[in-house]
Design a binder for these strands. Structure first.
Lengths: 254, 254
DNA sequence: GTTCGGCGGTCGACAATGTCGAACACCGGA
DNA sequence: TCCGGTGTTCGACATTGTCGACCGCCGAAC
């Protein structure tokens, strides 16, 4: 039995399908999307529902993701060592920079946000923990792509979507950006992902000097930039934070 | 095939086990905890790992929850209708009350926090989305227990832990509290869960008048209370917010 | 009101599937 | 070097999940 367990694989596929589609999906939708018999699909859905991973709307009979996933996802964060070490430093960074702080790790073909500190003002902000950001256009993504070989391969193999006129999509151009990132130890995103939004990020290393994640700040380009470049003060603050977290990861274990 | 799919059930049990234990677990630990053969357990873990639901520490070989769960949990929030409707109102409530706002739904034997607005000041706060709160001692929990028959049964069947000297654990005493809650339409928690912390909450109903969740605020007892009671202004603000969300969901007309 | 098409859900036969336990390779400590 | 422990692989067995036809239901169409 060298392979994987079929039914578990299929259950995972169901969950991923439900996560993708914005609205609820019916039994028949799920079955046809996965190419399974209705009976089989129903069995999987019934089990997932029983376990709390999937919920069914009483009225329409359609299925959606369940609350248990949120609870488990939260448990993942509790165990996450990088996040635990970074909590205090990212808070300081938000205070010092006056911008939102993000902590991301490589996951599949993107950056998974595992921590997010709101910009310290009263503005209305949406929490982005659990969200995915692209590798080739965000500061976090560029840092991971530059320092993590796995991320590098993913970013090159992947189709690089153009989000704004400034998004870098050509492979050779991206390589140049990554070289620059490696050389100076940080990366920027100047309106390459969202119009009017810029970000800076620096890598976090573990005790073996392997890249495990990236921290960065994101904010309106008018505040974060000066003369078309990220303010040096902010770059320094981000790099200080990344170094502090890296030091914490290298020291305190065992 | 009226039952559930065994392997999916077992995979869910593995995930729940990993979520429970604080630190990573080894293959043998998981196998013995679930009463399964090592080979079987390994197959499940291998599949879950392949799907990203579980990660394995290269050094120790031990297993922990994976990043994909965080991503799926986040997707759950995106679909969540109650949360979407509540976003704007809870923000206003935080501003008006000056305290943290929580939005919770019944999940298993507790309250699952699906939205959390930080207290609008610069203090350091931990995001609690995805966390579980007890039914019998928190304001959110009491509201759900009072208005949702399912929650009511859970709370009575469950062993009610004593968190502080003021926690209500006796069944008949709790019933009295629930009667009061139903009568006045809101519930309070005066240092019954955490010392020095008080909270108020009110129920959110859907279009069929069924309770679907609860909103509430939580804060230091010195700020939230006056003469040993919740400030009337805060109670009114919370109830207004709950009514507003209910109205948005298509519920009450007033 | 009645028909019809689609929905979610069920059932039972079949064999593909996952399970089990023994055996494996590997590591660290004694 | 040995040992006890780990995670991992393997093959025989029968349990288990799969499939597709079938059922009852609901809402739209007419």
């Amino acid at each position: 039995m060298a392979g994987s367990i079929q039914s578990v694989e299929r259950a995972a596929a169901v969950l991923r399908l439900l996560a993708g589609g914005e609205r609820r999906l019916g039994l028949t939708d799920v079955a046809s999307a996965l190419g399974l018999a209705k009976g089989t699909t129903h069995g999987i859905l019934r089990t997932l529902q029983q376990e709390g991973f999937v919920e069914q709307d009483d009225a329409s009979g359609k299925y959606q993701l369940g609350a248990e996933l949120l609870r488990l996802g939260n448990s993942y964060l509790d165990v996450h060592e990088l996040r635990a070490r970074a909590l205090v430093w990212t808070d300081d960074l938000a205070r010092a920079s006056g911008e939102s702080v993000y902590l991301g790790v490589l996951h599949q073909q993107g950056v998974l946000i595992v921590h997010h500190v709101f910009r310290p003002d009263d503005s209305r902000q949406v929490l982005e923990v659990g969200a995915m950001h692209p590798l080739h256009s965000t500061a976090l993504g560029k840092v991971l792509t530059a320092f993590d070989p796995v991320a590098h391969r993913e970013a090159l193999e992947l189709e690089r979507e153009r989000f704004t006129p400034r998004t870098v999509t050509a492979a050779d151009e991206l390589e140049g950006v990554l070289d620059l990132t490696r050389a100076r130890g940080w990366a920027a995103d100047l309106e390459e992902t969202w119009d009017g939004v810029a970000s800076v990020a620096a890598p976090v290393h573990d005790r073996r000097r392997m890249p495990v994640g990236a921290v960065g700040i994101t904010g309106a380009v008018e505040r974060v930039c000066e003369d078309g470049e990220i303010r040096a003060r902010l770059v320094a603050a981000v790099r200080d934070c990344a170094r502090a977290v890296s030091r914490d990861l290298g020291g305190g274990r065992f």
